[in-house]
Amino acid sequence: MAYTIQLIVEGFATGSIYGALALAIVLVNRSTGLINFAQGSMGVLATFVAFGLVQLGAPLLLAMLVAFVFAFVFGAGVERFVVRRFEGGDPDTAVVVTIGLFVLIAGIAALIWGYEPRQFPSLFPPQSIEILGVFISLRSVGTIVVLVAVMALLQVLFRFTKLGLAMRAVADNPQSASLSGLPVSRLLMVGWGLAAVLGALAGILVAPQLFISPTMLDFALVYALAAAILGGLDSPLGAVVAAWFIGIVENLAGAYIDFIGDDLKIAVPFIFMLVILIARPQGLFGRKVTVRI
């Protein structure tokens, strides 16, 4: 029993990392209607920036902050100089462009830093704590707490600030928003910038567990995409809940279902995704859209 609970908590923690990336995907999708396949590799790039600073002797927190600033500027720049040209056109084209970016950015990271996996320091102490006979790592607890805090911050941003209101308006209908004087292009850049910061956060949370490498977020991206779709693509809460669910299922299935093991466990969340989407095409939390014609 204690082992199961431990697996669940760890699943929660891994799910929180997928959740950060899933939030980024939802944010971009809500503002520009696209799925950004480069979200993971952009996060990796920012993580490498933090890594470089740590190697130069900077404290981790400072390195992380600089990486967030870098991610924000980079994300905003990608929207402004690359994606902008394809917005409002054929969405398939834009998606292929983001896949191209994914390959390009991963390639750049590999060129600069190589593929050999290297240690990245953790934000959290390595100890575990014992609660009612269950050992839980502080890393897991910390990861979950960070994600919950991020969600709360996003909630405050979108519900209670003027910037958040403006971002929601632009996501709803950019042309109409511009008629009220909203600086639509700048707000889109802010949306992509924030998403990139979330991606960087995912990278910084994942790196200590897996070693830092250009491909470290590839699996997480696949799960995050599944979570975003499962959650309904327009629902941040839905994406995170789905990501937790995926993290837990992945962990439990890998441990308890013999023939699944490590090789097949990546497939488990997708089987769930298929089943749920067949029953609820709009996702778990997505709004059923009634179209006025």
Partner: peptide, 21 residues
């Protein structure tokens, strides 16, 4: 605009606040 162009996913109050952006 023709066709009204309201922000469908936002509440009436938020639409008015966007007007005053």
């Amino acid at each position: 605009p023709e066709g009204r162009g309201t922000l469908g996913g936002l509440s009436v109050r938020d639409n008015l606040r966007i007007g005053a952006y």
